[in-house]
Design a protein around this nucleic acid. Structure first.
Lengths: 239, 239
DNA sequence: TTTCAACTCCCCAGAAACAGCGAGGGCGGA
DNA sequence: TCCGCCCTCGCTGTTTCTGGGGAGTTGAAA
């Protein structure tokens, strides 16, 4: 793998991008620049609705989406719990589903090595930036070691553009919760019953209910559990 | 402001840091390297519990914490909604509380210029990395323009260390959920009622209940909402 | 000044969730 | 082979949550 990558040029190209299709082209240019098999940016969205760009084959991408592989993909699960970029080797491949998934991926041309960077944006947005290649462990470690910083920056810029191009996903910008509503949601997420929450906050249970309903309304949630889930995924509460 | 900053050296120093106190020292070194007034890393916990390190005066930090300024600080509010690093000038200072807050900050030696980078980690973790200085707009723009990429990387490395030093905030490991349990938790988090979930999964509501109870047990949760919250914060389900 | 959002309190009835009991078939690892 | 986990289904009763009303205060923004 050649290491004559001009980081500044890449980032400027990314900055200048004005359309979604161009991002696709940049993944290809990056793949060639880094001399790796694949570069993928993958926005992981709520209901399994997904979006991204990259150099994986169409067959693999379609299969991934169709079979809802994001649910068993250890890369997603692992990155979701981490802040660090992560080498695929360090993930948990112990379950049968994981190994089967990996086998499938190999068949469809994904490299045996991978390096994925989790990226998080406002409102619980979550995405991955992945580099994948076919080589031995030592080569791969040298590569990731050398380029991890550049890749973090590139991932960051990719996500900027993705957020820019997908304003539709932003209107989820629900109105912020009031302090009391945050309190209520937080305590509910901690497992308190309504009675306990009311007591903890020193208010009547009915008042509490008003907060919950208000929060539910602001979050567009169907019930309390949904409201708590949304509040969490949008980073409005931390448990 | 001098621009002889050795980014690699900084990042290596950060990587080698093994204790919280050293991070404080690094903010001071960075301040000198960049020749700015202040460098601050600020972990914002929505519960109001906060933590960070930086070169602000002790008086200002104490005042900030004591008066719960994080609730009215436009830097926090603004960064929380953005992915991009942001110049303080571009934030919303229209409210009375904001302007009062800014006046206070100036009195306590915070610069009139600022540049803050939002950083997000697992479980809704949120932090800011801020550079602040006293100068005119043009000078500041030139500075941020030149260093924004470096600052993004530095911010990233700071957050790595912060997460590393706060293991109690890391998700605890719990037994993995079975596929059916994941399905159940996911659909519940999407706002479905038990009846709807059962129908969606094509199982009886009683069976569904067994999954929910099982998941609740595995997660050590007190009720369904709690179980969903824990499953989400541990990255077992993605909603 | 007026308006608006936030915070507080109250009643009631129906829907939903919880808790505890039990049972049987299948599949994979020790 | 046996043990344990996963998946599936059933019953009964209690507790909790939800949704529909209405009403008063405060404080900050327009």
């Amino acid at each position: 793998m050649v290491n004559t990558v001009n980081l500044n040029q890449i980032l400027e190209d990314l900055d200048a991008t004005s359309a979604l299709e161009e991002l696709q082209g940049i993944t290809e240019a990056l793949r060639d620049a880094f001399s790796v098999d694949h570069i993928v940016y993958h926005w992981v969205d709520s209901a399994g609705d997904q979006y991204g760009c990259g150099t994986y084959s169409d067959e693999w991408r379609d299969r991934y989406l169709e079979l809802n592989y994001h649910r068993i993909d250890p890369v997603i699960a692992g990155c979701f719990q981490r802040f660090h970029p992560v080498d695929w080797k360090r993930l948990d491949w112990s379950s049968k589903a994981s190994r089967h998934f990996f086998g499938e991926a190999l068949k469809y041309g994904v490299g045996n090595q991978g390096f994925s960077i989790p990226i998080r944006g406002p409102n619980g947005q979550f995405a991955l930036f992945t580099v994948s290649h076919n080589c031995d462990d030592a080569t791969w470690e040298a590569f990731t070691e050398e380029h991890s910083r550049d890749l973090i920056l590139i991932a960051h810029y990719f996500n900027r553009k993705a957020l820019e191009f997908e304003p539709n996903r932003q209107p989820e910008q629900s109105r912020a919760l009031s302090p009391r509503e945050v309190d209520a949601m937080t305590l509910l997420a901690m497992g308190y019953s309504r009675a306990q929450v009311a007591e903890t906050l020193s208010i009547s249970e009915h008042t509490l209910r008003v907060y919950i309903e208000s929060a539910r309304f602001k979050l567009g949630a169907l019930n309390t559990t949904h409201a708590v889930a949304r509040a969490m995924s949008r980073g409005l509460i931390v448990v």
